[in-house]
Design a protein around this nucleic acid. Structure first.
Lengths: 206, 206
DNA sequence: TTTTGTGAACCTATTCACAGCG
DNA sequence: CGCTGTGAATAGGTTCACAAAA
């Protein structure tokens, strides 16, 4: 069955809530309580989960820990996804210094650039590799996700290289639309789009 | 008329394309050419624009510069939106060092934190203010958008302060759902959601 | 002829509402 | 009785298809 992308995004939100609730010792919750935490409808929560199975008990609700683990399984988080960062400029470095990847269950296993000044140097304990070695290293390290923090001009070219290397998921920080083969998922984090959209809403009355 | 949020987001993408096209000396384009650049349908482009007016010439297409300016007007970009950054940690500092705000037509006019260690100190040329002064400074500086780079635990509390100060647009980097009054727009930039969603798609066959 | 602008048709996502089970 | 799971109904967004204008 085809799963709506919005459903997948909400699953990560559910996961986060369940993670915190489980830390706080909660062991059971209803679709209503979960929905309230995220300002959603209870039916939305149930429908989202129903795409993947039946995780609740009628009249009872969901077991917090169990549901958390089910969602982790659905999202493929229990595997410990391996990511590569491509482009070791300001943003790439800032991401490298981000301590949260491990907590989130992701592991930065390789970093890449095309600049001879950077290749071979260490950044936050990781040696920067030549981008031309990317396909080989993807296969060797079984990298799942590529994070693109390259200049806008090279983003499309790098996206092609990444796609051709068999990567199925790209997180793109470059303010550019990436043309990728069907079957490759791209998420864009685009500060300009967010700011400009907010600028529109800031201008609306009421 | 109610404008779909997706339409507003696409307008910023159109704007970017038009900006680059105008720099390259293009003076005219059709909905089809614009759609092709973003892998959309031409009808989508025309429908999006039709919410706001009639900007094209039948049989001819759109004037690049004119359309760019119309979209800037719609998004409220010609005003030069003023933004505040709240939370001067790693991420807040990284954003402050980002040179792109001015190019995008945004101006960081104030920065805030609640830590006595940071209040009064300069960061990238800007003096960090006490968050308690936020409401007054919003009014004085006519700030349009608040960027939240505060710890998750304080995000909701800061969002309330920001909303109560009359701010209508929040860009939230904290991995938390913000409960805000109707009429306040929130955009979330959430690395964890992006990574987890991509993890799902990385695990899909085909 | 080309391409816009737009109602109608279609498709996708959300919400309703209720049967079914604990 | 309470709450899930899910078809049906509704709402929302996209694409079609064509009249109208340059």
């Amino acid at each position: 069955m085809k799963i709506p992308e919005k459903t997948v995004r909400r699953l990560s939100l559910y996961y986060r809530c369940l993670y915190f609730l489980s830390q706080q010792g909660a062991y059971n919750l209803s679709s209503k309580s979960l929905a309230d935490l995220l300002e959603l409808e209870p039916a939305q929560v149930r429908k989202d989960l129903s795409y993947f199975g039946q995780f609740g008990k009628k009249g009872k609700g969901y077991d917090v820990l169990e549901l958390k683990n089910e969602i982790a399984k659905i999202l493929g988080l229990e595997k410990g996804r391996k990511v590569a960062i491509i482009g070791i400029g300001n943003l790439g470095n800032a991401l490298l210094s981000f301590k949260g990847f491990e907590v989130l269950g992701f592991q930065v296993v390789a970093i890449f650039d095309n600049s001879p000044n950077k290749i071979g140097k260490k950044y936050h304990g990781k040696i920067c590799q030549d981008i031309s070695a990317f396909p080989a290293i993807v296969r060797r390290e079984k990298i799942d996700i590529a994070i693109l923090t390259v200049p806008t001009e090279s983003a499309q070219e790098v996206a092609r290289l990444v796609s051709n290397s068999g990567i199925k998921a790209i997180l793109n920080f470059a303010p550019a639309h990436l043309n990728v083969p069907k079957g490759v998922a791209v998420s864009n984090i685009d500060l300009a789009v967010e700011l400009k959209s907010l600028s529109y809403f800031a201008g609306q009355k009421q």
